[in-house]
Amino acid sequence: MIDRLLGLSSWSLQRRESAAAYMYISPWIIGFFLFTLVPMAASLYFSFTDYNIIDSPVWVGLKNYVDLLDDASFWQSLKVTLSFAMLALPGTLVFGLFLAILLNQDIPFVKLWRTLYFLPSVLTGVAVVLLWVVIFNPQVGVINNLLKLFGLKGPGWLHDPDWALLSLVIMSLWGVGQTMIIYLAGLQSVPTDMYDAAKVDGANMLRRFRNITLPMMSPVIFYNLIIGLIATFQYFTQAYIASGSVGDEIGGPVRSTLFYNIYLYQSGFKFFEMGYASALAWVLFVIILVLTVLVFKSSPLWVHYEGELRGRS
């Protein structure tokens, strides 16, 4: 009927199917062009300009990219982001796997435990960050008051430049339920007869974990690593809210939480240097791309796919 209305009835079945497919995906394609590709192309152009949003952009060539090299805040933001990635990413991957293994055991109320551990990852955003700000409060926060019970004086957490980043790393574990649930799904697909055979062969728990669980889970670890890597380099909201709660300095104290995206935001929307911010965005894109490619390139060395034969595609 629709074919007739659109005058497609004379088309071959294959052409009609193709047309239907394109029609079905067209909302996404249009959205991608309008809201992703065009803005990306525009930001690439702006990255070569001096653009303050209000006046017309002025072409400056590579100046914004060259200026980055002499910008202490750029290097600081890169350092903060990389430090966070090196602490938070392994933390989330390891802790998530640890929880998943625990919750994959045959224990009473396992469904309840799984729900309880997953629940925090459902609650995200500003409200959770503000909750953590109170938890980290050096005077009335839960953590320092617990430490006080043992006669220990807790640090200043978000108020202390030496502890602020670590506070955010701890805070990032709040969302570990997401990683855990993916691991859990992976664990449940590991054939139990492998473990049974290993037990018969006398393999202890550690050995079973190293020789069965880890290889079988490596594609899932790989997936979580890629997703986590990208998310870590796009870290913004938590740091923005948390640093804003302890003073006027964005990314404070003393720039200890000046994440790359916070500096990007600051350049674009506080300093009104949209051209420079665009250059920052493209450098970030390249960094994430290079790291992702490196992880992909390294994957044949440590990711094991069931049924895969090495050396054959």
Partner: peptide
């Protein structure tokens, strides 16, 4: 904006004892 940021950093260093 960048000048204010530089001054805020100076203040932050003093307040935190950095």
């Amino acid at each position: 904006g960048r000048m204010e940021d530089a001054m805020a950093l100076a203040e932050s260093k003093v307040i935190t004892g950095e």
